[in-house]
Each structure stands twice: as structure tokens, then as C-alpha cells.
């Protein structure tokens, strides 16, 4: 605990503001944040598919537009795509870690630390690989 809080000032449930940061809590919070991110991404992607399906015959005008705003929006989408890709890999690998915990495996302090770092490293590597392959396919 970094500071004392009394009575009604105490925060609710998982006490994000009070605990000292370590790899376990960071991993756990990231699991929740990436989960939230992925949920809203799926909602957005789903409605994009719905929108796409029903506008298919109406217009293709925006495709040929050379306006700079479109380029900015496309780049922002690409950045968001990279963030979502990382979130997906992180949630995937950390989820597998959680499944092992549910089976009662990997609870030793050193193992938890190692798998936590491994999860972050693997998701960074796979994100870089995915971005690399995508760029390669797009430009070569």
C-alpha cells in the first residue's frame, strides 16, 4: 500500500490505484483492457461487415477520392489495427496462461514471472511478424 485511505474514500474491488505495480498485476490488468478493446473491436468490425454487405451496389465513389482526409483516416485505421492485433495476441497468449492456471499449473512465483514476460514478448513478436507480413504483401 502506498497510502492510507479511510472509510468511504476506499476504492472499490480490485484496488487499481493502491497496489504496487508488478508483472502479475500488469498482466492481469492488460488482460482486462485488451479484452475490453477486443470486444468493442468485434462490435465495430461486425457492423462494418453489415454496412459493407448492404452498401455493396450503391456507390464506389469514396474509393477513387484523392482527398487528404481519407488518407489520414486510413492511416489512423492502420494504427488502430496494429493496436488491436497486439491486443488479440496478448489476450490469446495470456488466455492460454489462464487456462493452465485453471488446471492448477504454473503457480510457482518464478514460473508466473517467466510466463508473464513470455506472454508479453510473444505478443510483441507476433504483432511485429503480422505487421511485417501485411506490409510485405501490400507493397511487394
Amino acid at each position: 500500500m502506498t497510502e492510507k485511505k479511510s472509510g468511504s474514500q476506499r476504492p472499490t474491488s480490485p484496488h487499481l490505484q493502491i497496489y504496487k505495480w508488478n508483472i502479475s498485476s500488469l498482466g492481469s490488468i492488460m488482460h482486462r483492457l485488451t479484452g475490453l478493446m477486443l470486444y468493442f473491436s468485434i462490435i465495430a468490425i461486425s457492423w462494418y461487415i453489415v454496412y459493407y454487405t448492404y452498401q455493396i451496389n450503391i456507390s464506389e465513389s469514396s474509393e477513387n477520392c484523392d482527398c487528404p482526409m481519407n488518407e489520414i483516416i486510413n492511416n489512423l485505421f492502420a494504427l488502430a489495427g496494429i493496436a488491436v492485433t497486439f491486443a488479440l495476441y496478448y489476450h490469446f497468449f495470456n488466455g492460454i496462461r489462464h487456462l493452465f492456471w485453471d488446471m492448477g499449473k504454473g503457480f510457482e512465483k518464478s514460473t508466473v514471472k517467466k510466463t508473464g514476460l513470455l506472454t508479453i514478448a510473444l505478443s510483441l513478436i507476433f504483432t511485429a511478424l503480422t505487421v511485417g507480413v501485411t506490409l510485405y504483401l501490400k507493397y511487394f
Partner: peptide, 9 residues
């Protein structure tokens, strides 16, 4: 969202 996306796909 599920229903809408299933119909679209």
C-alpha cells in the same frame, strides 16, 4: 450484433 452479422455473412 450477432444476429446482424450472421445475416450479413
Amino acid at each position: 450484433t450477432s444476429v446482424a452479422v450472421v445475416i450479413s455473412i
